[in-house]
Design a protein around this nucleic acid. Structure first.
Lengths: 82, 82
DNA sequence: TAAAAACTAACCATATACGGTTAGTGTTCT
DNA sequence: AGAACACTAACCGTATATGGTTAGTTTTTA
């Protein structure tokens, strides 16, 4: 068993949130990928919490969801505690 | 001349914003690094726009600044245009 | 002025992200 | 049933991030 990234729990929660949003907007992973200039494999990995998205990535996601990143973050509601 | 990352302009702006915030709060790069569990070299790289921080990273930064990430993003005021 | 601290910048090794490919599963549609 | 679509999951090669080291410059402090 290899050790998880420090961001593992956060990434998983964020991925689930993205998936929920995407489905609410009736988009496929392929469709979302096209909007953010990425491929559907990475969308899949993101939603499963396998990767830690950059802030820039998240901006493009928010754009695809037609909302401000600040609002997306607020909706996510994750509170980081050291 | 090697081609810049697509996020280059964004990263630079974010880095400048972080630097401004850090100085306002009278923190050194070393001090900030300690708060976010990182090293000062990476803070330097971040501020110079050399790297593209993960969303998780940004959460810890916001925490070090004692503010919500959503508010930090709002203050940054960057609007991504595809 | 001299020492200490802060920062930039290169380099290196390792970890993670990324893009693409292939394969397999499940669902929907005709 | 068969075809098309959506998704997961592995693999591989390349790019980028990360942590650490070293060196050099600027700024602050004594």
């Amino acid at each position: 068993m290899k050790k998880p990234r420090p961001s593992a729990a956060f990434d998983k929660k964020f991925g689930q949130f993205v998936k929920k949003k995407r489905i609410e907007l009736d988009m496929s992973q392929t469709g979302l990928a096209a909007k953010v200039g990425n491929n559907f494999q990475n969308i899949s990995r993101l939603e499963r919490g396998e990767i830690s998205p950059t802030l820039f990535w998240c901006y493009k996601l928010a754009d695809a969801f037609e909302m401000d990143l600040a609002d997306l973050i607020k909706e996510l509601g994750y509170k980081y505690k050291k």
